[in-house]
């Protein structure tokens, strides 16, 4: 399977719908450990990207760069900026290409992860969105079939949530509530869970905001 402009616009629509549905849940999760605006940040960001969807270029690099800029304009939230940073890193790699193979996804996730880690000055293992992306990068590495990649990515974000749920938050505002954060999903990881599942079109399998 190849990924082109049409794949991107379909994904944007699916992701915007997912955020319209989940923003309240994400606000609540964020409110327990932070300022409670993560859902609205994601929703505003996706709406901004969606508004500019008609003018999305065929060049995948330029298309993702446009998405990053739209998202950045909509909010100053660190989470939004981190996502835009990842998008811009991927955009640079894809500049000049109008289609790529699904097999490249694992590698592109790593590219985004590296740049986000540099910008966020955070380490892996700190119970952040980086750990979700790391799980996705590892699970999709070397996979070539689009369906396998989607399955592996959706499973990876679930596993990551579960694995980190009982750890302490180490960075950002949630760090202030380190003890309280044990047993609660990191809001950024939870948001990435929903993002990846929407992108992978594996949304039927979500039951992760419940503590097991």
């Amino acid at each position: 399977m190849t990924i082109n402009r049409a794949t991107i616009t379909t994904s944007i629509t699916r992701l915007t719908e997912a955020m319209e549905r989940d923003f309240d849940m994400l606000n609540t999760a964020d409110g327990a450990l932070g300022d409670g605006d993560l859902g609205i940040t994601m929703l505003r960001g996706m709406r901004a990207i969606n508004e500019d969807i008609q003018g999305l270029p065929d060049d995948l690099g330029l298309a993702l760069f446009q998405c990053a800029k739209s998202f950045t304009k909509s909010s100053g939230s660190s989470y939004g900026t981190l996502l835009a940073t990842g998008l811009m890193a991927v955009a640079k790699t894809l500049k000049g290409k109008t289609e790529i193979e699904a097999a490249q996804i694992g590698n592109l996730v790593s590219v985004a992860l590296d740049q986000m880690q540099a910008r966020g000055k955070a380490q892996l293992g700190g119970k952040t969105v980086l750990d979700s992306l790391d799980a996705v990068a590892k699970a999709t590495y070397n996979k070539t079939d689009a369906k396998d990649i989607a399955d592996a990515a959706a499973t990876a974000v679930d596993t990551a949530l579960k694995e980190f749920r009982n750890k302490k938050a180490t960075i950002g505002r949630a760090r202030i509530y380190a003890e309280k954060s044990i047993g609660l999903d990191d809001p950024g990881m939870l948001a990435m869970n929903r993002i990846i599942k929407a992108l992978a079109d594996r949304q039927g399998t979500n039951n992760n905001n419940k503590t097991e």
């Binding site: 950045t72 100053g76 939230s77 660190s78 981190l82 940073t85 966020g120 960075i171 950002g172």
Partner: peptide, 10 residues
Amino acid sequence: YGGDVMNFDM
């Protein structure tokens, strides 16, 4: 502050 640093870098 984390958010300001990220955004000014961006």
